[in-house]
Amino acid sequence: MRLQPWNRRHLIERIMQIAMIGSLVIVGLCLGAILWTIIARGLPSLTWQMISQTPKGGFYMGKEGGVLNAILGSLYLASGATALAIVFALPIALYLQTYLATSGWAQLVRLALDVLWGIPSIVYGAFGFTLMIVLGVRASLLAGIIVLALVELPIMTRAMDEVIRRLPRDLAQAALALGSTKLEVALRVVIPQTLPGIVTAVLLAFGRGIGDAAAVLFTAGYTDRIPTSLLRATASLPLAVFFQLGTPYPEVRERGYASALILTIIVLLVSFGSRWLAARLQRYTVK
C-alpha cells in the first residue's frame, strides 16, 4: 500500500532534500566564484615576464620585472619545511600505530597533535620571531622553513596516522609471526603498503605550507633577490600577493592578482597531482 504522495511528512522530506541539494550547489558556486574571480582578474596581467623575472628597479611602481623571486622562494620554503616535517612526522606516525596503537600515550600524543593543528600560524610566526630575537637570528630562509615545518607537522602526522590506522592488522601480524621486529614491520610492510597515503599526506602538508602567509611574515623576511643561502631572507608568493595589493599603483595591484593566480595554480597542481600519484602508487600495494 502506498502512502499519499503529498501528505505533510513527504512534503517535509522533499523540502529538506531540496534544501540539502541547494546547500551543496551554494558551496559549489562559492568555489566557482572564487576561481572565476581569481582567473578573470589574474589572467590579464599574467605574462611570461611575471614568471621568469625577478623585480627590477621600480617594480613596485609599475615598472618591469616579475615575481620569480617569490615563486622560487615559496618553493624553497615549502620544500624545506616539508622535508623537515617528514623527518619527524613519519617516525611519530609509525610509532603511534606500530608500537603504541591505542594506549594512553598514543591518545595523549594525538590530542597534542590535534591541538597543534589548531594553533593559528600567526601564533607560530610570533613565537618563532621572539625565538629569533632571543637567539639573535635574522629573518631568513632557514627560520621560515623551521616555522613552516611546525605548521605542517601536525597536518602531515595526523594524515599519515589515519592512513596507517586503516592498514589491515593481518599484514603486520603475519610479518610479526614470521619473526620480524616491529621496526622491520614498520619499514618493510607498513611503509610500502601505505605509500600512496603517505605521499598524499606529504603533498597535503606541502600545499598548506606553500600557501601560508602568517607563519613566514616575520620569519622569512622579504627580498627581491632569489635566495642563495639558507641564512638569507627570502620572498614568498603569499606575501608577494599581500604586499602588491597594498601598493597604491593599479598596475602593481593587477600583478598581485596575477601572483594570486600563480599561487592558486601551484596549489591546485599539488592537490590534483597528489591524487594522481596516489592512484598510480596504489598499484604496487598488496590488496
Binding site: L31, I38, V267
Partner: peptide
C-alpha cells in the same frame, strides 16, 4: 579544492 586554496587567495577574492 576549497580546503586547498590558500588564505591569501581567499583574501583576494
Amino acid at each position: 579544492v576549497l580546503a586547498a586554496i590558500p588564505p591569501v587567495v581567499y583574501g583576494v577574492w
